[in-house]
Design a protein around this nucleic acid. Structure first.
Ligand code: MN
Ligand code: MN
Ligand code: ZN
Ligand code: ZN
Lengths: 139, 139
DNA sequence: ATCCTAGCTTAGACTTCGTCTAATGAAAGA
DNA sequence: TCTTTCATTAGACGAAGTCTAAGCTAGGAT
């Protein structure tokens, strides 16, 4: 998500200060924030920013394909600005820590034709689960 | 999840009529119901069954490993009684239809050691996405 | 068979996460 | 600068799930 202002203009987006702050909060962060975490961080620069605008903007960024929406635990959604490099996620069952990971092959290749039920299959994402070093230690 | 009463007794579960009805509602259903769908169906046999008991029972079944908790869309969780046969899921982006699918290899084998961040990686689940035959037709 | 008690069930309040509404504000082209 | 169209906002609302506290009951003990 670098040079996001350029990309957003390309999408014919009206550039507002709010959208700029939200997008820059995501930009470069190799993390997976919740909407409320993004609001909190963005509010450090623009205290009057509203929750509704954060949700609106995130949903638009997802629709434009500039951000990925993740949902590991059935609780709050998380937003991933790392959309350029295909990757998957590894999550700690103990503490919820999340890492980006890369597989040695494309998982789409592992789904045989007779398992596709006539679908046009477009993508595959893998969630790996386990225990991080700290949580292994702590039983 | 066949012969679930036997299994539940093995887990030292107190067998109540409510738990029996809920478990039998899941049993044999090769689908992925939401908690409310399970409540609705179970209520056909036991109209006074409460929502809280459905949630309690499902959470316990998940903790016991008798049912899988799925969360595809960030909305309501779904419950999968097909816990015996390792499988993955294929979801239609158009209508939300969900299919069980099987891959030709174990995805754990495709995560190299240097991508594991010191985690003890225990399992991997793949979500395939695409469009079902009906939704392909309809653009 | 009956008693006892730990654990189960229940209604409804509550929490969390997210969407919607309708009034106000402002970006950007003319 | 003017105008139009779209964005922002506070707060109400909704959906999904958890919690509480009071009553009930499964199943072991007697
Ligand atoms: Mn990521
Ligand atoms: Mn399944
Ligand atoms: Zn951990
Ligand atoms: Zn479909």
């Amino acid at each position: 998500m670098s040079d996001l202002v350029t990309r957003l203009r390309r999408h014919q987006w009206r550039m507002t200060p709010q959208r700029r702050v939200i997008a820059e909060t995501l930009d470069g962060a190799h993390v997976h924030y919740t909407a409320d975490e993004i609001l909190e961080r963005a509010c450090e620069r623009m205290p009057e920013l509203s929750r509704a605008t954060v949700y609106n903007t995130l949903n638009e960024l997802v629709a434009l394909g500039e951000v990925l929406e993740l949902n590991f635990d059935g609780r709050s959604k998380r937003y991933d600005p790392n959309v350029d490099h295909e990757h998957h996620h590894l999550i700690c069952d103990g503490c919820g820590a999340t890492k980006d990971v890369h597989t040695v092959a494309d998982p789409l290749d592992w789904l045989p034709g007779d398992e596709r039920h006539g679908f046009a299959v477009a993508k595959a994402s893998i969630t790996f689960r386990g225990r991080c070093p700290e949580c292994r230690e702590a039983r």
